[in-house]
Design a binder for these strands. Structure first.
Lengths: 356, 356
DNA sequence: TGTGTTACTGGAAACGTTGCCAATACGCTG
DNA sequence: CAGCGTATTGGCAACGTTTCCAGTAACACA
């Protein structure tokens, strides 16, 4: 199956070949030139004659040489690789961010290695450490816990540039980041619901330890405050982004004495839990209870009725993160921050409430 | 911010430090032992005294040593890293497969680097080559095109073990793979539709060049043949897995002279396109037209009505792929194949047809 | 013919590890 | 006390690159 004209005549591989690696040395020997010349051709340095270039390229072809990036990186001191630690790749949102980042990085000649912390701070730390030991040139990540000392310590040991996605660590100006404007998105959503006459509005989301939750909460509060309305403290369920929590929280909310007339799901996984619970309770979205979710996914658009969402451009976030990192890699100074806007897409899941 | 007792007294870093790497040499010097002893401690070889171990570990702590995996891999000739090339990470199905694989590989001490070919055969090739140059120990992937010579050539150059996901390359017995039993799943789905009285059943999916499509098609045909029914050739739309194709194909099907009474969407992205088209045409799923999709995602469960799907366990697929690869890495022989079952989940999107 | 310049090429020392082999010290037996 | 095994350690050569520094040849010029 191998190309027959590749190995002379008498080199038919009979024995369990020891699979010796073909190195630049072989190329040099075959071309009858020095090792350094081969290197110069491969990295196209200026000082190589046309004849030398051809000679070497032919030899490379002839012996079937393949570069060893490990050796090269070791010598050069740079891997041209950027790490990306996602909280949860199975979340389509993160996948899009990763895609955006990878595309931009590839354009700039970097490659990206994607890993998954599955939302676990321990894995976060382990991944940061591993990537550091691998000598990546930069890192894009969305830590699972902004306050965890271990994670911060691992990050501090990293001398390469870091860009956070939707996270903020102590002392706002310490780290570069791409941040989405959750506060204004939420503010718009709550204003919309209040306009419709809702007053009992519930918010289900993760722990306020994470920036997106803090921001959403602040937008939520701002909207109530602006109208002089009391905050429905009992309707804040802030504990996790998981579908199961969404389901449980919704179940509890519906069973309460004074249940909400509108629910905001702060996370696209949460939404599936919320919908399951509403369905189980026999409530019809829109008619019985209004619903807003975060991030536009197929489910929100195709649900009956379609679900109002606070949207943002995930691919753009990834691109922006890559852009910042590239600036830092090029020697750019200080913490850089890009803010990504959010926008409210009104759909039929939000209907006039009791006072509307 | 750095630990103050870390650098003697007079080493306060004032200047733009050249960021010299702390190596085993520094550790050895600080501990007053040989380089090789440090290495022995780090790889916990048997022949190290307790005192030596402590001495070295203390020195490591003191100088803040961090292993260089590049150097280590170069020397050892093994990276303990497995590559994973996904067709499309933003497809939640692939994300789950990747998660399953990574989990299993990590248990075995390997780490996984995930990359994304975005369904492009060119990127496929480029990624295989890059990973090969990086000297990965093994590869899990789902090639974008089973027949493309370039991809096969790149794979052939790889001397490390490979496991395919739901793909089959020429000569069934040439490559290890995890294959899902699409044929039986589709057979069950079509039997279900035929039982309900449907005869005009459409299938929308990717190109038959890919195994999942071939298998689904074969299950589709088998079901019709088994009842002596003619195959509705005009209802086969096999060109792409994208949402836009799903939408377009559905549009065309609905506009035809003798439109289908049931549609099978062969791919979870396709489904969103199909639903958009049905919605645009004002058809109600279940009542007006029956619908079956492949792979259970939140949308299928939470749609109104819920959508009948041919399901399979994606995480299990990933685990199985890792399992096979680990066997091969341990010296296991020959191509290994694991078959993953599919099952039909009946929901309200499939209703009795005209003849039912 | 000698000198300087240009344009290339070769040699060798790194990069940070690991693993082989030889060296050392120790304790014990005969 | 010689001899020998055992347990531990040190030294050194790799792994496959890149890059600096000399060296060489060709050539033009005086």
């Amino acid at each position: 199956m191998a190309n027959p004209d590749e190995a002379g005549t008498n080199e038919a591989a009979e024995k369990p070949i020891p699979a010796k690696e073909v190195t630049m040395k072989e190329v040099a020997a075959h071309a009858g030139v020095a090792l350094s010349s081969v290197s110069r051709v491969l990295n196209d340095h200026s000082d190589v004659s046309e004849s030398m270039r051809k000679q070497v390229l032919d030899a490379i072809e002839a012996v079937g040489y393949e570069p060893n990036l490990l050796a090269s990186s070791l010598r050069r001191g740079s891997t041209m690789t950027v790490g990306f630690i996602a909280n949860d790749i199975s979340n389509p949102l993160f996948a899009e961010i990763a895609m955006g980042a990878e595309r931009r990085l590839n354009e700039a000649g970097y490659s990206m290695v994607l890993t998954n912390s599955e939302g676990s701070p321990e894995r976060d730390e382990a991944m940061i450490r591993l990537l550091r030991w691998r000598r990546i040139d930069g890192l894009i990540l969305s830590v699972a816990d902004e306050e965890r000392a271990g994670t911060l310590a691992e990050l501090a040991k990293l001398s390469e540039p870091v860009v956070l996605i939707d996270r903020q660590v102590r002392g706002a100006d310490e780290a570069s980041a791409v941040l989405s404007d959750h506060a204004n998105g939420m503010r718009a959503a709550i204003d919309h619901l209040l306009d419709l006459g809702h007053r009992r509005v519930a918010l289900i989301s993760g722990r306020p330890g994470l920036r997106p939750v803090r921001e959403r909460l602040s937008g939520f509060k701002a909207a109530f405050r602006a109208r002089g309305l009391d905050l429905p403290e009992d309707l804040l369920k802030l504990d996790s982004f998981s579908a199961t929590f969404g389901q449980q929280a919704t179940h509890e909310l519906l069973a309460a004495d004074d249940p909400p007339t509108a629910i905001v799901a702060g996370g696209n996984l949460l939404l599936t839990g919320v919908l399951r619970a509403l369905q189980a309770a026999g409530r019809t979205v829109g008619a019985d209870i209004s619903l807003v979710s975060c991030d536009d996914v197929p489910l929100t658009e195709l649900h009956s009725p379609p679900i109002t969402v606070i949207d943002r451009d995930a691919v753009q976030m990834g691109e922006a993160a890559a852009e910042l990192l590239l600036k830092l890699l090029a020697g750019g100074e200080g913490p850089l921050v890009t803010e990504i806007p959010t926008s409210l897409i009104r759909r039929a899941s939000t209907q006039p409430g009791p006072a509307g």
